[in-house]
Amino acid sequence: MNIDNPIIFFGTEDFSAVSLQRLIDDKFNIVGIVTKPDSKKGRGQKISMPKVKEIGIANNIEVLQPNRLKEIIPFVAKFNKPTGVLVSYGKIIPQSIIDLFNPGIINVHPSLLPLYRGPSPIESTILNGDTVTGVSIMLLSKEMDAGPVYLQEKITLSGTETSTYLYDSCGKIGSEMLAKALPKIIKGELEPINQCDDRASYCNLLTKEDSIINPNNITSYQAERKIRALEIYPKSKITICDNTIIIKKASITTNPNSKELSVKFKDNNYLVLEQLIAPNGKIMDGKAYKNGYINKMH
């Protein structure tokens, strides 16, 4: 669908790139991309550009990487009230910037708002063992994820999803919803409905402290969900025989095999560590780690 209305896209994370590429493929008029400055990533701390910047360069779209958002005001002013689209940008947008756009800035959020307002809705969904999640298309407001909602789509969960899987699923679904809804939003044919603030729940920015698993403090089920939820960042770490390892995959059992690497939790169940990252950085299965690093289970 060819939409002539100028659109400025805000996004930084890989989750953003799916929606940006879909809008470009559908011939929307993307006149600019606003993303965070390039940053150091990985063990080598190499300077890395956001994926949306790569897409912008490949499609000859101007890319802005402001340290302060007010730096984009002259660029936005050139287009006389463009439409804004924001997907996982990573900064709070002040009302003074939102007001530069018509009808405002449209946001893709991977939760069934007003549930999980905040920066980690996908991880929170898995951590809490939810059976349903979804994606919301909303009109951005200065309060975090509190704006009125245009439409939502539910996703039924099996209880085995990882954060990588859900980011991928929600990214694809969100991009399809956005591409279909945006023409109607721009034409004023789709009206958003206010959220019920009384039902709102919030999630926090994840930190490295969240990665620690203490078998004495949580159940095996909580630990297994944590491993799936924090798979991307900050990952799940456990200390066994004075060595800290990163757990990539685990399962719950009441009767562990002596050959497997298993840990007892406070609910008296065991977590079988099926795949992990050893202290030397190598990915290996639990049995190999037990044979190589541990002479005797404690």
Rank of each mutant, 00 (worst) to 15 (best):
N80H: 15
T131E: 13
P74I: 06
S111A: 15
T160M: 03
L127I: 15
Y116K: 04
L139M: 12
D145V: 06
Q152E: 11
G104L: 01
L140E: 02
S111D: 06
T125A: 01
S111R: 05
I92D: 04
P94W: 09
S158I: 07
D145Y: 08
L100M: 14
P103G: 11
K91W: 10
S163R: 07
N80G: 07
L86K: 12
K81C: 08
L112P: 09
G147Q: 10
I72S: 07
I73M: 03
L115V: 06
D130N: 15
I97D: 02
R117Y: 05
E123S: 14
I72G: 12
P110K: 13
I73H: 00
K81L: 14
G134M: 10
L100P: 03
I137F: 00
P103I: 08
L166T: 05
I126A: 10
V85F: 11
I98S: 06
M138F: 14
S120E: 13
L151P: 00
N107D: 11
Q95Y: 03
E153K: 15
T164L: 10
A77H: 15
K78I: 11
I137Q: 05
T156V: 13
S136H: 02
V108S: 04
I72H: 01
I126Q: 02
V76N: 04
V108K: 06
P121A: 07
A146D: 05
G84R: 10
L140W: 02
P110E: 01
A77I: 00
S124M: 13
Y150W: 02
I92N: 02
P110C: 08
T131F: 06
V85K: 09
P94A: 12
V108W: 13
A146L: 07
M144F: 10
P103H: 06
K78Q: 14
A146G: 08
P119C: 11
I93Y: 01
